[in-house]
Design a protein around this nucleic acid. Sequence first.
DNA 1: CTTAAAGTGTAGCCGTTGCTACATGTTGGT
DNA 2: ACCAACATGTAGCAACGGCTACACTTTAAG
Lengths: 163, 163
Amino acid sequence: MTKTKDATSASEASESPPTSGAEMPSEAAQAHRFGKARSAQSTALLEDYVELISDLLGASGEARPTDVARRLGVSHATAIKTISRLKREGLATSRPYRGVFLTEAGTALAERVRLRHRLVVDLLVAVGVPPDSAEADAEGIEHHVSDTALAAFRAFLGRGENS
Amino acid sequence: MTKTKDATSASEASESPPTSGAEMPSEAAQAHRFGKARSAQSTALLEDYVELISDLLGASGEARPTDVARRLGVSHATAIKTISRLKREGLATSRPYRGVFLTEAGTALAERVRLRHRLVVDLLVAVGVPPDSAEADAEGIEHHVSDTALAAFRAFLGRGENS
DNA sequence: CTTAAAGTGTAGCCGTTGCTACATGTTGGT
DNA sequence: ACCAACATGTAGCAACGGCTACACTTTAAG
């Protein structure tokens, strides 16, 4: 590390500005939250790809880059590039012109993601969100739900440990 | 590839693969959902900045780039660059060395975002997520909650229109 | 078999969001 | 008035995710 990391924390106690209504969390806590959200964002794509590939494999026995691309609404070139990233990260393998497959890690991730997705959708529906809306919203939400929250969802839905 | 229910554009119905296992949404629908999630992602940053700036303005009367940077856990250079984007998009103004301010549009956006944030947190808490977890999760989730879902949340929480 | 269509892969570009490093402006203490 | 500390701004770099354009392989049709 060069610098950059002074442990500044609550430094505003000394100042006493108007300070009226707003309750603000500590700098550190807030920064940490935002950081978490940002990093979640970076894995979200991989999760989407892995889940989709898993679905395709399950549904038709194979997952082709173009199928993936079409499902995700991106160009095939983009899909291929991201699939390369999946391979780099040890989640998938692929033989040229032979389709994409998931490694063990990839399969495990896909399973986790799928369960989480369903749980989120079910929760949304349970609190009154229309099913199609729930499905669409879950696509964006699911990547940001902590395990703690998932456990709460499960409890709320009256489920033990299973889906 | 299995086409489940709707026969949107070009699909392959000729194959009759093992199928069975998975139910997949139509290509078009799925692509649309992913696209939505992606675009939401692109506005998420702006929303975070605007909300934070609004909070800082409310709490201390001014919002300086470094404060914003520290709160978000990024370098001041990054914050300044993003604030430039806010200005480009007509959400904020700033005079050098004088801090950042929100335009009318920015203020309105901040208000909407703040309400949404609280609603999401409250819903999470209502279904049993611990408050601190709810607060952290909401930071990532809020950007992906549709108006439809928000309305459902409000109804579920037994609120009319207000927060 | 030959050829056209479709899938696959590569290269190069752009915009975004991070970062560090450096340069400049502001401000406060002495 | 000065200088040091800090805030601010700019520049350049890298990784990512998107795209189009082009090259190549496979597959399907004739």
